[in-house]
Design a protein around this nucleic acid. Structure first.
Lengths: 233, 233
DNA sequence: TCTTTCAGATTGTTGAACAATCCGTCGAAG
DNA sequence: CTTCGACGGATTGTTCAACAATCTGAAAGA
């Protein structure tokens, strides 16, 4: 069975018989593959081979490209094609600019009410998971738990749009880590910072938590930017 | 000359000869028409008539639909079609949730540096424009100036993504006003509030400005929600 | 009155075709 | 030897026509 048939088959298992979801399915598959690192930053996504591999038409594939392009997971260059996004230094600055507004605001402006309760648990769980991953030496585990933590912070807002924006930003962060294999010792120091943030938040010291997080984000940004400037790239 | 020919002609004047921009052009035209109120909320956008009117193929039109749907200007119901969005009460709550996080954060967390200078002018100009519109009794003028003011606030962040998010939210706000013709006396009271916000911001009292804006946004939300609950709808 | 069925209309998806653009190669001029 | 421009192949952008899937509304039946 060829790759094309395998994927087309997968599709029939996944969305068998359903109408009006092919484009979504395609964008979902590509998102996964990119997040998993199977399609590294810079990879060209040629239309014809991909169509055959996925078992869909060019039109449908292009619809998926539109979606991913809007999410910045993929870069479309007119008349040249689409490529898996390779974040630049400016992209990193933009990502952290967004995070520096969104995350502290989520901490500071959210009243500790019925919404915050379940999410506090979610945050504590993410911290626990990160600690376990650190103990096990699992870098992907730490990265995942860290993303879950920051997604949880924005979830405090209860806003669907802000959550979606944060999800996109975190997806772009994954591309940053794949662009430079600077995953090694990046996450470890922040596990304890995350724990401290939850602690402060649980104690009702919201503005302290926000301040800590702001400093934290500035440090992380600087670290990534200097890593990007290194000989590695 | 039929409507179809008129629009197709307009297209040739606008993007004559250019490749790879038809989809953008279509989404732009629809965005305009919707913002201008020529296509009121709830209007069904049938594919075939629109294709003919715009002089593009169904595929291209559907690409534009994807864009507008992602921006929430249009609602796509699978196998039923796309409609000009008609914001619900929950949508209004979501809009103001986003604004209550974004706008105060933009005021509070932005240092008064070289970025803030030009934008302060922009804000003052918007206030001036709103006053002129109020004096002239122009409701669209006040609405426009008000939108420009709030867009300017988020522009303080210097973030492209936050600016885009705010632009989408403001576009949805226009749909809210068109859903219920509650434009009458809505904007007038806020002109002076806007002026006060700029004043506080110029004096370096950022957190006071943010607090004022927060209260302001809560009031506006409540006003719109109660207007929506009235017999008018 | 309520359900069921059935056509007609509309959307979802495909495949093929053509136009526009880009890329690399080749040849000519300097 | 280098630089520049023309040419051809490959890829993307867009259109068109067809068919499959789904919805809508009205007629037929219980």
């Amino acid at each position: 069975m060829t790759l094309a048939e395998t994927l087309a088959d997968l599709r029939h298992q996944t969305v068998a018989g359903r109408h009006a979801e092919t484009g979504l399915w395609v964008s979902g598959v590509l998102r996964e593959r990119i997040a998993a690192g199977q399609l590294p930053p810079g990879t060209k996504l040629s239309e014809e081979p991909l169509c055959e591999a996925l078992g869909v038409s060019r039109n449908t594939l292009r619809e998926a490209f539109s979606t991913l392009s809007a999410e910045r997971i993929v870069t479309r260059i007119p008349n040249r094609g689409v490529f898996v996004a390779r974040p630049t230094a400016d992209d990193i600055r933009e990502i952290y600019r967004v995070r520096r507004y969104l995350e502290p605001a989520a901490l500071a402006y959210t009243l500790t009410d019925e919404v915050a309760g379940p999410i506090l648990d979610r945050l504590r769980q993410a911290v626990e998971q990160a600690r376990a991953a650190r103990a096990a030496g699992s870098i992907p585990g730490m990265a995942g738990a860290n993303q879950e933590f920051h997604a949880g912070i924005v979830a405090l807002t209860g806003s669907e749009r802000l959550n979606r924006l944060m999800a996109q930003v975190l997806a772009e962060m994954r591309l940053v880590f794949r662009s430079m294999d600077e995953d090694e010792h990046f996450h470890a120091p922040y596990v304890d910072d995350n724990a401290r943030v939850v602690e402060l938040l649980g104690a009702g010291r919201q503005s302290d938590a926000a301040a800590l997080l702001t400093a934290y984000l500035r440090r992380a940004e600087a670290q990534l930017l200097s890593a990007l400037a290194e000989p590695g790239r």
